[in-house]
Amino acid sequence: MKLMDELVDAYLDNNFEHPYYLDLYTGQVILDIDEAYTGEPGIDWDDEENEERYIDIPKIDSNEAFYVMTKFAQRTESDPEDRLFDALNGHRPFRRFKDVLYELDLWDEWNKFEYKHAEEMIKSWMERLDIDYNELNEKHKANH
């Protein structure tokens, strides 16, 4: 899997019990939860070196996710009856939005749209922190 794909997956994983970190030495994306779940040892936060080595990957929050769904609904011509907007305005908007995506056969289009948004957010985050994606990507490739 490409580094950007892993970063996007971490960003879009809205389970806040899944803390993801980017290893600046290896370019690896690490899910830091109990070894029983991942089969990999967690990050040793008692080692001071690790505080500089690993950086917390941001996650999409519900407000931003709702905004992205709204932007998708605005640009979707395959929904002349505005069913996506109706889903967003009702009870359980996230679930209803996804149900309507399936009904309108827009799931693939939505996934591409959401991925593109997440990729832009990840690139912006890396730029703010002055992280060189290309350098990390080379490290990532070398470790796979």
Rank of each mutant, 00 (worst) to 15 (best):
D56M: 12
I131G: 01
E120I: 09
H91L: 14
E35C: 10
N15Y: 11
D86E: 15
L7G: 05
R128W: 08
H140Q: 14
N137W: 07
Q28G: 06
E51Y: 14
M121I: 09
R96L: 11
L88Y: 02
Y102F: 15
I33V: 14
N14T: 15
F66S: 12
K123N: 14
W125D: 04
K71Y: 03
L136S: 02
I43Q: 04
Y20M: 09
G39N: 02
I131C: 00
E103G: 11
D105V: 10
E35W: 09
D130I: 09
F72A: 04
D23C: 00
K59S: 05
E114R: 12
Q74H: 11
D9R: 14
F72C: 08
R92Q: 08
E52G: 05
G42I: 12
D132N: 11
D34T: 10
K59I: 06
E119G: 10
I131F: 00
V8Y: 06
L12S: 06
G39K: 00
R96G: 10
P41L: 03
T76M: 06
I122P: 07
D130F: 12
K2E: 15
F72K: 06
K112P: 04
W107P: 03
E81I: 03
P58K: 02
I131M: 08
R95P: 08
D108V: 15
I43T: 02
I122D: 04
E138P: 15
V8N: 08
N137Q: 07
T76V: 04
I43S: 05
N134D: 13
A87Y: 05
A118Q: 00
W45P: 04
M69S: 09
Y25S: 12
E127T: 13
D86S: 13
N143V: 06
D47Y: 07
M1Q: 13
F72N: 00
F16I: 12
N89V: 03
I55N: 02
E119H: 11
P19H: 06
V100H: 11
Y21T: 08
A118W: 00
P58L: 00
R75P: 02
K98C: 04
L84Q: 05
G90T: 09
D82I: 14
G90K: 09
S62I: 12
H18V: 00
D56G: 08
A142I: 09
I131R: 04
Y11T: 03
Y115T: 08
D5T: 14
D130E: 15
R92P: 02
E52V: 05
A10H: 08
R128N: 07
D44M: 04
K123F: 12
D32V: 01
H91G: 07
D13C: 03
H140C: 09
R83I: 10
P41V: 01
D23H: 06
D13M: 07
A73K: 04
L22H: 01
R128F: 10
H91Y: 15
K59N: 07
